[in-house]
Design a protein around this nucleic acid. Structure first.
Length: 496
RNA sequence: UCCUCCUUAGCUCAGUUGGUUAGAGCACAUGACUGUUAAUCAUGGGGUCCUAGGUUCAAGCCCUAGAGGGGGAGCCA
């Protein structure tokens, strides 16, 4: 996993065009060679004799300095090399006379591919607030921060596939449009081609979905898990990685209405196997980013540090971004049961001094995020795998433990993020499963196909769901999930 | 959905006890400068003070309603 191998710019003996990526220029010694760069102007500094253009093409966070001599490049062209303009520059790579870079491009010719009127172009060579950039999400990837975030996001997505492929898991595409509304993971977005102004009705006055496209009610998926289990019952170890939709009215820094979720599902795994996989997987993906995104992570670490410094001293994080990522990779996650967690919380000084908004009194209550944060950020100061929750507060498909009170659930809690993984060993015993479905009013006839896996060749199995954007949030050190997905969908916002 | 804070130039913000012509930095334009690093220096243009209504001799500032945004909570990944 060497750093240089990850972005093999002009990797192929046959590049598809003549330009060289800036990443490739910086990775090689090209002094004396004539090359063509294409990219966008970040800043231009001029005097009577020379202009310096900082060019960025997105291949790497670093800008490359183009030196333009007004005797060679016309005043008209130089004037159009304003912030945001797109240029094709041909010239010779030379050792730089300036201090900020080892080489630079002496421009022989500059072609303006696309102008950017400096009076109207919203991005300026200065700091912008993340909130302002969110309003111009179509342009924000041209900034250092967002280009770094999206390069890291790519690396993490690639690492997910690499991890599972190397472990011989199969990538399954579960449906985006689902005909079952019994998955119970949240409010759903309806999919229909019916005319909303003239809804057909049945003789009883209900909407007649027989006339809809699929001849039944359909929604966007809230989870691929149930279908994933079907695949695991044939292929053994599988994973999904796809878009997921929740129509919850959630307005937080860690919820999206459209997000990407990774859901491995493994036949023959028990709860502990599941935990071992999840921990190893998280560490691998983070290590992959550390190995392959050093420049971007260093930039993001600096950005995060500056943001930390605006906070009061007692609220600042102890570790910088890189240190935090290394810490997670190098240390075992803490594993404890819900019951043990309740004991720790109940006996904590924090609880005794009534500093929790919701005081811990008895076994069975769901943990509030203040409790999860206390365990992860104050008590253990490392990622925590919480297991064996009361069955009342967990989903119907989780395997019932022998105590009759708990299920083989696991949540992985990360500092600053909260729940990043939710999973469980699944209930493979038909009688136990249908009993829970009845208790929780899940209609068995809707899930006949799911129950068939328990009728035919059932086996212990387990899996989990990982919110991809929460992972990106953690690795990039960004504070708001809307800033780690290109075009966030949240209540009241589906622009772009 | 609830709690809370915010909305003044392109951006980030200041604006005193309600008082005359609303300010700064950056950005932008023009000029200066023999190699700059978010260059520097000088000059200049730029305002629906979120919207609607109200109180007042007088509202950026006070009151009511609404819109948009931030943070926290719930739901969860």
């Amino acid at each position: 996993m060497a750093g240089k191998a990850f972005f093999p710019i002009n990797y192929s003996p046959m590049a598809f065009n003549k330009r060289v990526k800036i990443k490739a220029v910086l990775d090689q010694d090209l002094i004396g060679q004539e090359i063509t760069l294409m990219g966008w102007v970040r800043t231009k500094r001029s005097n009577k004799n020379v202009s310096f253009i900082a060019l960025n093409d997105g291949s790497i966070i670093t800008n490359y300095q183009v030196v333009a001599d007004p005797n060679l490049i016309s005043e008209e062209v130089l004037k159009k090399c304003s912030t945001g303009a797109c240029l094709k520059v041909t010239g010779t790579v030379v050792a730089s006379q300036g201090a900020g870079q080892s080489s630079e491009l002496n421009a022989k010719s500059i072609e303006i591919l696309g102008e950017a009127d400096p009076e109207k172009y919203p991005l300026q060579p200065k700091k912008h607030s993340l909130e302002f950039l969110r309003d111009i999400a179509h342009l924000r990837m041209r900034t250092n921060t967002f280009s770094a975030v999206f390069r890291v996001r790519h690396a993490l997505a690639f690492a997910v596939h690499k991890y599972f492929n190397d472990k011989a898991f199969f990538y399954i595409h579960t449906p985006i449009i689902t005909g079952s509304d019994a998955e119970g993971a949240g409010e759903m977005f309806r999919v229909t081609t019916l005319d909303l102004k003239k809804l057909p009705t049945t003789s009883e006055g209900a909407i007649d979905f027989k006339q809809d496209f699929f001849e039944k009610e359909t929604n966007l998926t809230v989870s691929g898990q149930l279908e994933g289990e079907l695949a695991a019952m044939a292929l053994g170890e599988i994973y999904t990685f796809g878009p997921t939709f929740r129509a919850e009215n959630s307005n937080t820094t860690r919820h999206l209405a459209e997000f990407w979720m990774i859901e491995p599902e493994m036949a023959f795994y028990d709860a502990e196997d599941n935990q071992n996989l999840a921990e190893d997987f998280l560490k691998y993906v983070i290590q992959y980013a550390l190995n392959n995104c050093a420049e971007d992570l260093n930039f993001l670490a600096q950005r995060a540090l500056e943001e930390e410094n605006t906070k009061p001293a007692d609220q600042r994080a102890e570790l910088g971004l890189i240190e935090k990522l290394k810490f997670v990779v190098e240390n075992d996650f803490v594993r404890l049961t819900y019951t043990e967690a309740i004991d720790i919380l109940r006996n904590s000084n924090h609880n005794k001094k009534k500093k929790f908004q919701y005081l811990i009194e008895e076994w069975g209550a769901d943990l509030q995020s203040e409790h999860e944060r206390y365990l992860v950020e104050k008590h253990f100061k490392k990622p925590v795998i919480l297991t064996d929750y009361p069955k009342q507060i967990k989903a119907f498909y989780m395997r019932q433990n022998e105590d009759g009170k708990t299920v083989a659930a696991m949540d992985i809690l990360f500092p600053g993020i909260g729940e990043i993984v939710g999973g469980s060993q699944r209930e493979e015993r038909m009688d136990k499963l249908t009993q829970r479905m009845q208790e929780m009013h899940i209609p068995e006839e809707e899930l006949w196909w799911y129950l068939d896996t328990r009728r035919f060749g059932a086996t212990p199995h387990a899996g989990f769901g990982l919110g991809f954007e929460r992972m990106v949030l953690f690795v990039t050190g960004m504070g708001n999930i809307r800033d780690v997905i290109a075009f966030p969908r949240t209540p009241g916002n589906a622009e772009f």
